[in-house]
């Protein structure tokens, strides 16, 4: 762990700038699998620039809640992101229990996005909102179990901030499994699944389908347009970065003495996660909706297993 603030803020700036790259990478990987050329990697930047310049069509059924959804979903990710140890450096805001704050802040954004969807009075958007609410509720225990496992891994009362994201996600598990603790290998698996759920990727949700009946996240934002849609897309990209950074935080060991090398390796790991998401999307089909609950239950069970095995050591 480097107590340097500069690399941390550089990583934060990088996250803000480079987050829209991740969907681009995913799309490129999917295109390559399908034997297509694919969209440019920078496509989301073009989209964002275009959307920010455009006007908006706002439904007459809606109220301020409709506008609050995109704004809050973006603002909450802005707030949650610097709580993470970005680029492998402890956050300057780190405190005991910041994982709770991060989870609940993201919950706030999700809550208002759900409300914004219900505000339009559209049956499709209600459908998406209902699914998002239910699956988010089921994903929460699994996420907490992951956090607790990581906290248990370095559990020591004498370490200050042992219940902080900055201690959990600075590379401890990447080496721990070599020391006869292979159960931590389950964590990347569970976190990857949670990443797919929270960011609505295949096999949970298909961001590219054109069937509103089967979508979750995309169907919630059908009525948003212009800057609102830009906010939502950007927030989604940042959220993907957030979860990729979680994964990168546990697979990249904190062994590099040069902070910039550490930052580069972490960023490369985040890009690798995007590639992995692309591969997963290419080789898997969307599961049926009732199976999602089972999938999340399975993720929770795996995380619980990892936690138990960590605790008895």
């Amino acid at each position: 762990m480097m107590p340097t603030a500069l690399p941390f803020w550089c990583s934060f700036a990088l996250a803000l700038c480079a987050a829209p790259l991740l969907p681009g990478i995913i799309n490129r990987v999917k295109a390559k699998f399908a034997g297509r050329q694919g969209k440019p990697v920078l496509q989301l930047y073009y989209d964002l620039a275009k959307l920010l310049r455009k006007g908006a069509v706002i439904s007459t059924s809606t109220t301020w809640v409709f506008a609050a959804g995109p704004v809050l979903s973006l603002a909450t990710v802005f707030v949650a992101l610097p709580l993470l140890p970005l680029g492998g450096f402890a956050s300057p805001f780190a405190f005991q229990g910041d994982f709770l704050l991060a989870a609940y802040v993201l919950g706030l954004g999700r809550f208002f996005l759900i409300l914004a969807a219900l505000d339009t009075g559209s049956a499709f958007e209600g459908m998406g909102a209902s699914r998002e609410a239910a699956y988010a509720a089921l994903a929460e225990p699994a996420l907490f179990l992951c956090f607790l496992t990581l906290a248990g891994l370095g559990a020591d009362e004498h370490i200050a901030l042992h219940l902080s994201l900055s201690t959990m996600f600075t590379g401890t598990p990447s080496l721990a499994w070599l020391e006869a603790r292979p159960e931590v290998l389950l964590l990347p698996l569970v976190l990857f699944l949670l990443l797919l759920v929270e960011n609505c990727r295949i096999p949970i949700d298909d961001p590219n389908t054109h069937l509103e009946l089967t979508m979750i996240h995309e169907v919630m934002v059908l009525d948003h347009s212009g800057p609102d849609l830009a906010f939502i897309h950007y927030a989604a990209a940042l959220k993907l970065w957030f979860f990729s950074a979680l994964l990168a935080g546990i697979v990249v060991p904190a062994i590099f003495s040069n902070p910039w090398v550490q930052l580069a390796v972490n960023s490369a790991a985040i890009a690798a996660v995007a590639v992995l998401v692309g591969v997963t999307e290419s080789i898997m089909a969307r599961v049926r909706l009732p199976r999602i609950a089972q999938l999340l239950g399975g993720a929770g069970a795996l995380a619980a297993l990892a936690l138990m095995l960590t605790l008895i050591r």
């Binding site: 499994w177 006869a180 292979p182 159960e183 290998l185 389950l186 069970a301 795996l302 297993l305």
Partner: peptide
């Protein structure tokens, strides 16, 4: 050796749940 043994044990447990 111990790590391989532990991995085998975890695989055993996962196999049970599967």
């Amino acid at each position: 050796m111990a790590t391989v043994l532990q991995i085998a044990i975890i695989l055993l447990l996962l196999g049970n749940f599967a």
